[in-house]
Simulated assay, not measured.
Amino acid sequence: MVDDDTHQRDLMYSLLAPIGFEVLLADKASTGFEFLQEHDVDLVLMDVRMPEINGWKMVEMLREQHYSMPVLMVSANARDAEYNLQAEGYHNDYIAKPINLDALLGKIAQLLNLQWLYEESQNTAIIDEPKILDKPLVTAEQYQSLIALAEIGYLSGFKDKFSEIESVSRYPEDIASQIKEYVEVCNFPKIIEYLSELNHEA
């Protein structure tokens, strides 16, 4: 995974490492090329918007250096999808942020000729803790950290951050309940909208 966003790299690792992938995380193109020289890489997940060398240029350089593994381009910008049509011949597929796990696994299965076997698992829910009134109220900065994770669709990271904040600060009961309701159905647009309003008021 080549992406300059730390949260996005963490998200991809948390999605793929538990199901058996060895995930190499590069924050820029030069680090990605170092990994390619040191490891046998089966698939490259490539962010489009990066400083210095962007994803389109890096995948072009990959092909010029005769790397033939499939490349899946990843971007949060809808306009990149338009360019996607003009960049045929270098990359193999394209997926938009926030990453949908089912869509990602579907594309990986297609690119690597895999077949997934699923088993039932219990979803990890945000656990209610007793309200401790002497904790300070959640701050605007803490809400902003949740918004950043919601914007990239990082569900497990969002839950972890929510619990971390809850351990040191206090959410008003109605606010905590509403956030958990949106989290249960993975409604990230509503989470972002709601937290942005709270952030403005905090």
Rank of each mutant, 00 (worst) to 15 (best):
G89M: 09
Q8I: 07
F35S: 02
F158I: 09
E119C: 15
M61Y: 08
E173C: 09
K28S: 15
D174A: 09
P70T: 03
G20Y: 02
F33W: 10
T139K: 12
Y154I: 06
S75V: 01
G157T: 04
R170N: 11
A148G: 03
G89Y: 10
T124E: 10
S169D: 00
V48T: 02
S196T: 15
E52P: 11
E82P: 01
N54D: 14
D134R: 14
V185T: 11
V59Y: 01
S145I: 00
H7K: 12
V59G: 01
R79D: 15
D42P: 00
V41F: 04
W116G: 13
T139F: 04
I53K: 07
L105K: 14
A148K: 15
P51W: 13
A148I: 08
T31Q: 08
F33C: 09
V168Q: 15
L146Y: 01
K159T: 00
Q122V: 15
M1W: 03
L36P: 02
M46F: 02
V71C: 05
F158W: 12
E166A: 15
P98E: 06
N100C: 10
P18F: 01
Y94Q: 05
F21D: 08
A76I: 04
I19T: 11
H200F: 04
E129T: 13
I165G: 09
M46K: 05
A29K: 07
D5K: 11
Q8K: 07
R49W: 11
P189T: 05
N113Y: 04
M46Y: 04
R9Y: 03
K97M: 03
I191C: 11
L104Q: 05
N123A: 14
Y143C: 05
A148Y: 06
K180W: 02
I147P: 13
N100A: 08
I99N: 06
D102G: 05
E181L: 14
P51F: 07
L15S: 09
P70L: 04
P136M: 09
Q110G: 11
P130N: 12
N54I: 02
G20S: 06
E119Y: 15
G89A: 08
D42R: 03
L101F: 06
L198P: 08
T139M: 07
V23P: 05
L198Y: 08
A109L: 10
P189Y: 04
G20Q: 04
M58R: 00
E141V: 00
Q178H: 11
K135H: 13
E141A: 10
D134L: 15
A81Q: 13
I95W: 01
A87G: 12
T124W: 03
Q178F: 09
I175N: 14
V168K: 15
L114Y: 14
I179W: 01
